[in-house]
Each structure stands twice: as C-alpha cells, then as structure tokens.
C-alpha cells in the first residue's frame, strides 16, 4: 500500500499540493493525471518521501520500485548492472551482488522484454530501452509497490504502446500497487484502475478510471473541451479513448 493523507507541500508561499489524499492498495494501479506544472511529480516525490511535507502524512513501504523519468547517470554500466542495483536494499552496505541477485535482475529484464540488451552499455540504449531497463530494476527490488514518473513522456508511439502493454499486464497480475504520472488520459484508460486528477484550483479528484476519466472532469482538468470515442483495438474489442476537441481542428 502507498498513498498520501491530507498532504500539503509548499514552495515558499506557493502551495503546490494542498491536503491531498489517496491510497493505492496492492493489486491496484493509479494514474496521476494533470497538465505539466500541476504538481504531479511533487505529489509523487512527496509519496516517496523525497519531498518534505508541510502537513499530512504518507504511507509507503521502505523500498519502492521507482522508475525515474530519466536516469541521470554518468557511469557507463551494462544494462544488467543497472538492473541488479534493484538488489541494493537486500545487500546492505558492504555486500556485493552475487549469482542469485544477477538471476533476479535477469528475470526482471526478461519480464520487461529488455533481456536482449542486458550486456549493452546502458547509456548507449534508446530512451524506450532505458525505460524498460529501469522498470526491470524497479521489479528487481522485489517491492510490492511500483512508482513511475512520467514513464511514457519521452517515448514514441510504438514504445508508448510497449510500455502500456507491460504496465497493463503487471496490473492484471494484481501483485503490486502501481502508481504512475502522465498528462495523457488515454494512458490512464490503458493501464490504471484509479485516477487522480490534479485540478487547476488545487483540489484533486480521486476515483475509479471509469468515473474520473470522463469528459466533464477532463475539461476542467485541461481547460480544453474533451470528447470520448469508442474504437476497436487490435484484438477487435472495443476501447474507450478521450480526445481534445481543439477549437481549430476540423474534419476533412
């Protein structure tokens, strides 16, 4: 379980997160939605304990499988060596990862589909490939909680699909509490049970995707008229999608 309870974060006089409450139990996925600059990342950092709370409290296990937006790293390490760092908490200060730890890391790379470039230098991989390696590292921690900061923001459509399929399959397993931030409501529709909408007035709307990711709420969230459309997915089943009805857009 991970979440915030009446959490408030201020930067100077500005209140970025105002009495925010939500919780994600094991087996559910939450998408934190909102345009850029609305405090999504701050809420996420607060939840992880990287951001001091002015009020309220947080709930999180001591180790969280965290996937940063980009990994700032000037070391040139192999992807497998990045993934094995997920074992750090289990090893403590002075121990080195052994064969079992590498086995866990390899399993995680297999799970995310990154095993093919396990031996490649991490910094030579594409953005999408790196994202999958970092997700494998998060899985390798063994934590029941996964937190992803804008996991799809820097990815092209193909890689977005790969990532969302992966997140969805992790959701389906119901073994983990998953939280990710995104500015695209369709990502929530693709891989989340619940959504948290960071509204412009500082309030937040928290509830199941089916109720919260609806045109009326989204219009308030983004300040853009939104429409829901039904489309058939690759397997033929119907999918719901939301689109902005931009004023300048026209058909034909």
């Amino acid at each position: 379980m991970i979440g915030l309870s009446h959490a408030t974060v201020r930067f100077g006089a500005r209140t970025v997160v105002d009495r925010l409450s939500f919780s994600v139990p094991i087996g559910r996925s939450l998408a934190i939605l909102g345009p850029n600059g609305r405090g999504k990342t701050t809420a996420l950092r607060a939840m992880l304990g990287f951001q001091r709370l002015h009020a309220g409290s947080r709930t999180a296990p001591s180790i969280v499988g965290y996937v940063p937006q980009v990994s700032v790293n000037n070391q040139r390490l192999r992807a497998i060596d990045i993934a094995v760092m997920g074992r750090a908490a289990h090893l403590g200060l002075f121990r080195q990862p052994g064969d079992e730890d590498y086995a866990v890391a390899r399993t995680a790379l297999n799970r995310t589909g990154a095993a093919g470039y396990a031996e490649q230098p991490f910094d030579r991989l594409s953005g999408g490939e790196r994202q999958l390696v970092l997700l494998a590292r998060a899985l390798a921690t063994g934590s029941e909680v996964l937190v992803l900061d804008e996991p799809a923001a820097a990815l092209d459509l193909h890689n977005q699909e790969r990532l969302l399929v992966l997140l969805e399959s992790l959701r389906q397993e119901r073994h983990k509490a998953i939280v990710f931030t995104t500015h695209d409501p369709n990502h929530a529709l693709a891989a989340a049970d619940d959504a948290l909408l960071m509204m412009p007035d500082g309030s937040a709307l928290f509830g199941p995707v089916a109720e919260t990711v609806a045109p009326a709420h989204l219009e308030r969230l983004y300040g853009v008229p939104m429409r829901t459309v039904e489309l058939s997915g690759p397997a033929g089943a119907l999918h719901r999608a939301v689109l902005p009805a931009f004023a300048g857009a026209r058909a034909g």
Partner: peptide, 29 residues
C-alpha cells in the same frame, strides 16, 4: 572499507532520488 563499498558506490553515483528509492540512506552513506 571503500573497496567493500564498491557496489554501494555504483548506487550512490545515481541520482539522489533513485539512490534513495533503492534503499540507500544517501546522506549518511
């Protein structure tokens, strides 16, 4: 002792938030 911290240094060399999320008490270490 530094040598025995060699794997820990790999983790410490990561971004602060990443290192912390991996269970490293960055400041103390």
């Amino acid at each position: 002792l530094l040598w025995s911290l060699r794997f820990r240094l790999n983790v410490l060399a990561l971004d602060e938030a990443e290192a912390k999320s991996l269970g490293v008490r960055t400041e103390r270490e």
